[in-house]
Design a protein around this nucleic acid. Sequence first.
DNA 1: TCTGGGGTCCTAGGACCC
DNA 2: TCTGGGGTCCTAGGACCC
Length: 460
Amino acid sequence: MTLDRNKSLPFSSAGPRRAVRPALALVDCNNFYVSCERVFQPALENRPVVVLSNNDGCLIARSNEAKALGLQMGDPFFKVQDFLRRAGVQYRSSNYALYGGLSQRVMATLARFSPELEVYSIDEAFLNLTGVVQQPPDEAGALEAYARRIRAAVKQWTGIPVSIGIAETKTLAKIANRVAKKSKDKQGVFNLRDAPGREAILAAVAVEDVWGIGPRYAWRLRARGVTNALELREADERWIQHEMGMGIVGVRLVLELRGIPCLPLDLCPAPKKEIACSRSFGEPITALDDLREATAAYVSRAAEKARRQNSLVQTMVLYLMTNPFKNERQYFNSAVIHFAVPTASTPEMIRASRHALEAIYRPGFRYKKTGVVLTGLLPGGFYQPDLFEAGNGRERQTRLMRVIDRVNARLGAGTLRYAATGIHSRPWHMRRQHTSPAFITSWNELAEVRADPRDYEEGG
DNA sequence: TCTGGGGTCCTAGGACCC
DNA sequence: TCTGGGGTCCTAGGACCC
């Protein structure tokens, strides 16, 4: 028999308690990647700025000024580059080392304000503020004041501006956050839970802007007259489930809009069930040798990720593809590799990927991308030894991997790596022509600060 | 010339088992 | 002429998220 911790215990706790209304805060960093760039390049403040995806492919972050110019998420860089120049928009290649580092600082700051924190993505976190602030005469006021303190602390300690939305459920907190971000008079904080006029607020949110409603569902819903969050809230949940084909997920969504929590906080993230690593190439690749290197590099990276979460890999999928945007002969293929003994050993995985690559490679195509996906992940130290496995080679491999990971953690990613991943700069490497310095992850690229007496004059 | 990368959950259907 | 029913596991595909 197992103990189900989600069920309440069979005896009652200390008598009747006042019903506590849940208060969930969603803290969302404003235009996160742009804000990260601005932390160390103040000259970017108050100017239109965009950040580009890998390979300088498309726009993935825009400052408010850039949004006002009509630039869209996902716009291909090469199509808007002229416009960016003419309009004086600053652009930067993405710098994930910087963004990851600043994200950690933001999350560490938030953790000081509530014992229950869910890091939802690189730039978002849910905080449970239920009962954290209890001042009966004016709980709503206290809650808002608390949120403002959080916001000020994050800004002061990390340089990142955030918006905070508060409500009873995650889905409503998302909406509250939108309001906090969009309306100037809210100054970055909005408590939907205690706000008057909830109906009007929900009615002003287009259905496709509700968390969980993507383009497909939005289209279906609109075709049946459901156009905003209020109408979605009022919809019959069985109809949503079956007629709209949104399943149990759709039911939860509707209930959440009604203020009934269906999506609990996830406080300690489980290990990933799937680990992927893939990149588009800086230029089209035709040679098998180059593909081998690229593949080995991605396999290495994926294996590292697996080891970091202490997983062993049972299955690896390798794929390669041409550029689907091109009007030329297309090819896509993939190969599945099963490891008789689950492994996290980089050389073993590189070896296996080599054979797989050779099996699916066809000469004469211009390849754009390869990638690797690891699945069937098992918790480490939990494997069936191979019946025919000889000796202690395995143990030695594990120790070797541990040493390599430790060295790389200390001296920087890629300090020790397999020659199969390539030694010189290769055509498959990403294009990153507009990168800002690695301000917080490289001693050589630290920001330089010079004091200017004028800085001390205003404001004291 | 130039269009990102990494995930999750749910559902339906088939294989298989008893 | 008759041809069960229920459960589990796996996989592929769909939809969504940041």
